[in-house]
């Protein structure tokens, strides 16, 4: 049941250490392909993906929202990190990727979280463990530990996502969750703003005037 055909454009940036599989994750999601060795990313590359989020409550109605995701896939090598602020500037969400078979790549996540929290307003952060297909053979980062870290750092409503770009496990769900969370946050911001506005109006002349434009652009 869709009352408003809303649409939203959002910027998503993918960050994480060299070789954790950032490009593979994006390629699996956008093109549904996987190659065991994708070319290393220099600087950053940019892709867009359209999707739809169903059944989000907006102004008391169940709404469907069309989303255009701008996905920024970045280089992982430490020295390219100096360019990262230009990629995450203005981003609405960030996916931080570590490799579950590399403790070091997981350690690197915390500095990303700190940097994002310091330099961006309220970016929506998602922590993702990649290469789940290798879990049995060479897992180094237990899921429980990653989960505990994520809850501790980002709040109790957050979960670590474990995915495999190789066999596609969890990839669509991840991007769906990220997008859904973006839409919900946007509606939440919109609601708060409307309430504040309505409050202002009532204070001034008692007339209530809800602005009806779809202010969905983050």
């Amino acid at each position: 049941m869709s009352m408003h055909g809303s649409s939203l454009e959002a910027k998503l940036v993918i960050l994480g250490s060299q070789g954790v599989g950032k490009t593979s994750l994006v390629m699996r999601y956008v093109q549904n392909t996987f190659s065991p060795h994708s070319a290393s990313t220099i600087g950053a590359s940019f892709l867009t993906q359209r999707m739809q989020v169903f059944g989000v409550i907006r102004r008391g109605y169940v709404d469907d929202c069309r989303v255009v995701l701008q996905i920024w896939d970045t280089a992982g090598q430490e020295r390219f990190r100096s360019m990262a602020p230009m990629y995450y500037r203005g981003a609405n969400a960030a996916i931080l990727v570590y490799d579950i078979t590399s403790e070091q790549s997981f350690q690197d996540i915390s500095s990303w979280v700190e940097e994002l929290q310091r330099n961006t307003g309220d970016i929506d952060i998602h922590v993702v463990g990649s290469k789940l297909d290798l879990a049995e053979k060479s897992r180094e980062v237990p899921q429980e530990r990653a989960q505990a870290y994520v809850r501790n750092t980002l709040g109790s409503l957050h979960d670590v996502h474990e995915v495999s770009a190789k066999d596609a496990t969890g990839v669509d769900e991840l991007f769906h969750d990220v997008t859904r969370s973006l839409v919900e946050r946007t509606y939440e911001i919109e609601r708060t703003r409307r309430e504040r506005q309505a409050g202002d109006v009532q204070l001034r002349d008692g007339r209530q005037e809800a602005s009806d434009q779809a202010c969905c652009n983050v």
Binding site: Q18, A39, S40
Partner: peptide
């Protein structure tokens, strides 16, 4: 280590590198 991670990611579509 850094180099090792990039070896197989250099021209993955070139037959001589694969």
């Amino acid at each position: 280590d850094l180099i090792e991670r990039d070896l197989h990611r250099t021209f993955p579509e070139n037959i001589q590198f694969t």
